[in-house]
């Protein structure tokens, strides 16, 4: 059985945030606050997850006048399975995924 490569602590934290409400669409600032990741770290991870088919995204029209549409994200079914697998791997390795990680 091929070894599952463990994601970084930042990615695990982001997956945890997305998994809190997997069917809800999350926006970037909300994820940034929840994970304490700066945008410079958050967006490359989001892009990577999206490239691998773990994340879907769309533009959501703003409900407030004068504001631009907002890019929102949520895990795909494949992404949910991946997240669960990553949590198991992290648990086996004894990595805390709920704690605050250092910001990059």
């Amino acid at each position: 059985m091929p070894r599952v490569r463990r994601s970084s602590a930042q990615t695990l934290n982001l997956l945890r945030s997305l998994m809190d409400q997997p069917r809800k669409w999350h926006h970037g600032y909300e994820l940034s606050k929840a994970t304490e990741l700066l945008s410079g770290t958050l967006y490359p991870i989001l892009m990577r997850l999206s490239d691998r088919g773990f994340l879907e995204h769309k533009w959501l029209p703003s409900q407030e006048a004068g504001r631009p549409p907002r890019h929102v994200y949520r895990l795909t079914a494949k992404g949910v399975a991946h997240a669960q697998q990553q949590f198991e791997v992290a648990d086996e390795a004894g990595v805390a995924v709920t704690g605050t990680v250092s910001r990059a």
């Binding site: 926006h27 970037g28 600032y29 945008s39 967006y43 504001r67 549409p69 907002r70």
Partner: peptide, 9 residues
């Protein structure tokens, strides 16, 4: 564009 739009919020 997503990053820029987000900054408006």
């Amino acid at each position: 564009d997503a990053m820029r739009a987000e900054s408006a919020y």
